[in-house]
Design a protein around this nucleic acid. Structure first.
Lengths: 166, 166
DNA sequence: ATAAACCTTAGAGTCAACTCCAGGGTCAAG
DNA sequence: CTTGACCCTGGAGTTGACTCTAAGGTTTAT
């Protein structure tokens, strides 16, 4: 059993945050000591890690509470309800995964294309990578081009030539 | 070129949000009309989509601004700086990816284990899946067990027996 | 030429998620 | 038996990210 400060330190959050989570129904210690101290079990700690992981990938505390409520109210719900809820979250997670993979790919190609040397990054192909990562709408021929875009088109040509953009 | 309301609708945000992003240095329209109206190019739109994608996977606006500043200040930085920054973000993204995959796996096993029928979910293996998804610290033999944990151990036995937890 | 539907700014308000503070209780070490 | 490090509660304050309001200017359709 951990006291609030111990669990907080272990998970790199503040004790206040744990009290906040308790007030909002996300995580209550399974036991209190005689003096009223919160005592957290290993299961409580696991639940906290679950919460923090969900938070780190962009879920709000409300969404997390919804997910966790499955665990709490499970006697009052039908399997179908539970499965529906889980599947909904699953779709959300898969969408996030796809976005993150897209994200990673663009950062990766950015990193690979950049020589990493001491030169100015002025001609680095960052712009290009970010653009393609953002699914930039292709410029149709005939559209007015700003100066920067000229530079960028230039970069693209360079990159094509020798994969050397810096 | 899109006016603020058009771009906002296209990306499912409010016009106010775009003005907010401009004030905070994330996205400025490349042109203003004679009357002072903001006019966004396709590149601006791509940049906005990049911002929204990053936000959806849990990056703060400050972190996103940091990433985007690469694009803006590239003339003032060495390639090494840029590469370092990108690689740092890349590590963060890969961490998030790992968490999300872990997350997806636990939701998936949850969904598969649950029959989805009209029965009470009381004996559904949700607890188990959430626990394992949270990398629950293994209970050592000899540690005091709460009643719920007994129930859970029971569930686990059921699940082992026939993969039928509902 | 005028109403509806846009746009502008500056500044105030809202909401989520903490974070801190005051005033007090608990507990192990010296 | 007190000192210092912890804990408690209730409530106020902060930060990030919008979101809205007021007071006005612009565009477009009739």
């Amino acid at each position: 059993m951990y006291r609030i400060g111990e669990l907080a330190k272990q998970c790199q959050v503040k004790a206040d945050t744990l009290r906040f989570y308790e007030k909002h129904g996300l995580l209550a210690p399974s036991v209190r000591s005689d003096a009223g101290y919160r005592l957290y079990s290993n299961m409580d700690a696991a639940r906290l890690r679950f919460i923090l992981r969900a938070k780190a990938v962009g879920f709000s505390l409300n969404e997390i509470a919804e997910l966790l409520s499955i665990e709490l109210d499970k006697a009052n719900w039908a399997c179908a309800d539970v499965k529906g809820m889980v599947d909904t979250k699953l779709v959300q997670v898969q969408l996030k995964l796809a976005e993150l993979e897209h994200f990673r790919d663009s950062l990766q190609s950015l990193s690979e294309a950049c020589c990493g040397g001491p030169e100015s990054a002025e001609h680095c192909s960052i712009l290009e990578a970010l653009e393609s990562s953002s699914q930039a709408v292709r410029r149709e021929a005939g559209t007015a081009c700003e100066p920067q875009i000229q530079v960028h088109a230039n970069n693209k040509a360079q990159a094509k030539l020798g994969r050397q953009s810096c």
